[in-house]
Computed example of a mutant assay.
Amino acid sequence: MAAAGTVASADVDDALAEFQGHLNLIFTKARSLWKESAARIHPDLQPAGYKLLASIARAGSTNGHQLAELFEMDKSVVSRQVRMLEELDLIESRPDENDGRLRVLTATPAACAALADVRGDHAQRLRASITGLTPAELRTASKVFRLLAEA
Protein backbone atom coordinates (compact mmCIF):
# COMPACT_ATOMS: atom_id res chain seq x y z
CA MET A 1 0.00 0.00 0.00
CA ALA A 2 1.28 3.46 -0.90
CA ALA A 3 2.16 5.88 1.83
CA ALA A 4 -0.13 8.86 2.34
CA GLY A 5 2.68 11.26 1.39
CA THR A 6 3.20 9.45 -1.92
CA VAL A 7 -0.50 9.69 -2.81
CA ALA A 8 -0.58 13.38 -1.87
CA SER A 9 2.54 14.01 -3.94
CA ALA A 10 0.98 12.23 -6.95
CA ASP A 11 -2.18 14.33 -6.51
CA VAL A 12 -0.11 17.51 -6.43
CA ASP A 13 1.86 16.38 -9.50
CA ASP A 14 -1.36 15.62 -11.40
CA ALA A 15 -2.91 18.94 -10.38
CA LEU A 16 0.27 20.80 -11.36
CA ALA A 17 0.37 19.07 -14.76
CA GLU A 18 -3.27 20.03 -15.36
CA PHE A 19 -2.53 23.61 -14.26
CA GLN A 20 0.48 23.84 -16.59
CA GLY A 21 -1.62 22.53 -19.48
CA HIS A 22 -4.25 25.20 -18.89
CA LEU A 23 -1.56 27.86 -18.54
CA ASN A 24 -0.17 26.83 -21.92
CA LEU A 25 -3.66 27.20 -23.40
CA ILE A 26 -3.94 30.69 -21.91
CA PHE A 27 -0.60 31.69 -23.48
CA THR A 28 -1.72 30.31 -26.84
CA LYS A 29 -5.00 32.21 -26.56
CA ALA A 30 -3.15 35.39 -25.56
CA ARG A 31 -0.88 35.20 -28.63
CA SER A 32 -3.93 34.72 -30.82
CA LEU A 33 -5.69 37.64 -29.12
CA TRP A 34 -2.63 39.91 -29.60
CA LYS A 35 -2.55 39.02 -33.29
CA GLU A 36 -6.28 39.70 -33.70
CA SER A 37 -6.06 42.92 -31.69
CA ALA A 38 -3.06 44.17 -33.68
CA ALA A 39 -4.97 43.64 -36.94
CA ARG A 40 -7.94 45.56 -35.54
CA ILE A 41 -5.72 48.55 -34.72
CA HIS A 42 -3.98 48.50 -38.11
CA PRO A 43 -3.60 45.76 -40.75
CA ASP A 44 0.20 46.19 -40.80
CA LEU A 45 0.63 46.14 -37.01
CA GLN A 46 2.48 43.12 -35.64
CA PRO A 47 1.56 41.50 -32.30
CA ALA A 48 4.84 42.71 -30.74
CA GLY A 49 4.01 46.24 -31.86
CA TYR A 50 0.53 45.90 -30.40
CA LYS A 51 1.96 44.92 -27.00
CA LEU A 52 4.33 47.88 -27.06
CA LEU A 53 1.58 50.27 -28.17
CA ALA A 54 -0.75 49.07 -25.40
CA SER A 55 2.03 49.55 -22.85
CA ILE A 56 2.86 53.04 -24.12
CA ALA A 57 -0.81 54.05 -23.96
CA ARG A 58 -1.23 52.55 -20.48
CA ALA A 59 1.87 54.38 -19.19
CA GLY A 60 0.92 57.70 -20.80
CA SER A 61 4.49 58.08 -22.00
CA THR A 62 7.65 56.00 -21.87
CA ASN A 63 10.84 55.39 -23.83
CA GLY A 64 12.35 52.52 -25.77
CA HIS A 65 14.79 51.62 -23.01
CA GLN A 66 11.96 51.18 -20.49
CA LEU A 67 9.98 49.09 -22.99
CA ALA A 68 12.98 46.85 -23.68
CA GLU A 69 13.39 46.23 -19.94
CA LEU A 70 9.68 45.70 -19.33
CA PHE A 71 9.26 43.15 -22.12
CA GLU A 72 12.79 41.74 -21.85
CA MET A 73 13.29 42.46 -25.55
CA ASP A 74 16.44 43.40 -27.41
CA LYS A 75 16.68 47.17 -27.87
CA SER A 76 16.99 46.74 -31.65
CA VAL A 77 13.67 44.84 -31.76
CA VAL A 78 11.99 47.58 -29.73
CA SER A 79 13.55 50.23 -31.96
CA ARG A 80 12.18 48.57 -35.12
CA GLN A 81 8.72 48.21 -33.60
CA VAL A 82 8.74 51.83 -32.39
CA ARG A 83 9.73 52.99 -35.88
CA MET A 84 6.83 50.97 -37.33
CA LEU A 85 4.41 52.44 -34.78
CA GLU A 86 5.56 55.93 -35.79
CA GLU A 87 5.17 55.14 -39.50
CA LEU A 88 1.62 53.89 -38.85
CA ASP A 89 0.86 57.13 -36.95
CA LEU A 90 0.08 55.20 -33.78
CA ILE A 91 2.69 56.89 -31.59
CA GLU A 92 4.46 60.21 -31.44
CA SER A 93 8.06 60.67 -30.40
CA ARG A 94 9.84 63.71 -28.99
CA PRO A 95 13.22 64.28 -27.35
CA ASP A 96 13.39 63.65 -23.61
CA GLU A 97 13.83 66.97 -21.78
CA ASN A 98 16.24 65.43 -19.25
CA ASP A 99 18.24 63.17 -21.57
CA GLY A 100 18.53 64.18 -25.20
CA ARG A 101 19.64 60.65 -26.15
CA LEU A 102 16.19 59.30 -25.27
CA ARG A 103 12.90 59.72 -27.10
CA VAL A 104 9.62 60.07 -25.17
CA LEU A 105 6.92 57.94 -26.76
CA THR A 106 3.19 58.66 -26.50
CA ALA A 107 0.22 57.03 -28.19
CA THR A 108 -1.75 59.17 -30.64
CA PRO A 109 -5.38 59.99 -29.83
CA ALA A 110 -6.49 57.71 -32.69
CA ALA A 111 -4.43 54.84 -31.29
CA CYS A 112 -5.85 55.42 -27.80
CA ALA A 113 -9.40 55.32 -29.16
CA ALA A 114 -8.73 52.12 -31.09
CA LEU A 115 -7.11 50.53 -28.04
CA ALA A 116 -10.11 51.50 -25.90
CA ASP A 117 -12.43 49.71 -28.34
CA VAL A 118 -10.26 46.60 -28.31
CA ARG A 119 -9.98 46.64 -24.50
CA GLY A 120 -13.75 47.00 -24.20
CA ASP A 121 -14.23 43.88 -26.30
CA HIS A 122 -11.60 42.03 -24.26
CA ALA A 123 -13.37 43.01 -21.04
CA GLN A 124 -16.69 41.71 -22.38
CA ARG A 125 -15.08 38.39 -23.37
CA LEU A 126 -13.43 38.04 -19.99
CA ARG A 127 -16.60 38.88 -18.09
CA ALA A 128 -18.58 36.35 -20.16
CA SER A 129 -16.02 33.61 -19.50
CA ILE A 130 -15.94 34.10 -15.72
CA THR A 131 -19.63 34.79 -15.13
CA GLY A 132 -20.12 31.80 -12.83
CA LEU A 133 -17.22 32.55 -10.50
CA THR A 134 -17.77 33.97 -7.05
CA PRO A 135 -15.80 36.99 -5.81
CA ALA A 136 -13.81 34.63 -3.55
CA GLU A 137 -12.90 32.44 -6.53
CA LEU A 138 -11.84 35.52 -8.52
CA ARG A 139 -9.66 36.68 -5.62
CA THR A 140 -8.05 33.22 -5.47
CA ALA A 141 -7.38 33.25 -9.21
CA SER A 142 -5.97 36.77 -8.90
CA LYS A 143 -3.67 35.59 -6.09
CA VAL A 144 -2.39 32.74 -8.26
CA PHE A 145 -1.68 35.10 -11.18
CA ARG A 146 0.06 37.56 -8.83
CA LEU A 147 2.27 34.77 -7.46
CA LEU A 148 3.15 33.66 -10.98
CA ALA A 149 3.96 37.23 -12.01
CA GLU A 150 6.26 37.65 -9.03
CA ALA A 151 8.08 34.33 -9.57
Rank of each mutant, 00 (worst) to 15 (best):
I56A: 02
H42K: 11
L45R: 12
A39P: 09
I56E: 00
K51E: 11
R31L: 02
D44K: 15
A38S: 13
P43Y: 13
G49E: 03
I41S: 05
H42A: 13
K35P: 14
D44F: 12
G49C: 10
L45D: 07
S55T: 06
R31I: 06
A48F: 10
P47S: 07
P47G: 03
E36L: 13
N63K: 02
H65K: 02
L53N: 01
W34Q: 13
W34D: 15
K51G: 06
A48H: 07
Y50K: 02
D44C: 12
R58V: 05
H42W: 15
R31Y: 05
T62M: 01
K35E: 14
A30V: 09
A38V: 12
T62F: 04
R31V: 08
K51P: 02
P43I: 14
Y50A: 05
S55K: 04
R58F: 03
G60H: 04
A59L: 05
L53Q: 03
G64C: 01
A54L: 10
S32V: 12
G60R: 06
E36Q: 12
P43R: 15
R40F: 12
L53I: 10
L52D: 02
S61T: 01
A39I: 08
G60I: 02
Q46R: 11
P47A: 08
G49P: 01
S61Q: 06
A38T: 15
Q46D: 15
Q46N: 14
H42F: 11
A59R: 04
T62Q: 01
S32E: 15
S55P: 08
L52V: 04
L45H: 12
A39N: 12
A48N: 13
H65Y: 03
L33Y: 04
I56V: 07
H42R: 13
A30I: 10
S37T: 08
R58S: 09
S61R: 00
I56C: 02
G60Y: 02
R58K: 07
P43G: 12
S37Y: 07
S37F: 04
P47F: 01
A30F: 08
W34L: 14
A59H: 00
G49A: 07
R31D: 11
S32A: 15
L45N: 14
W34V: 12
H42N: 15
L52N: 01
G49Q: 07
W34G: 09
S37I: 04
G49F: 05
A54P: 02
R40G: 09
A48I: 12
S37E: 06
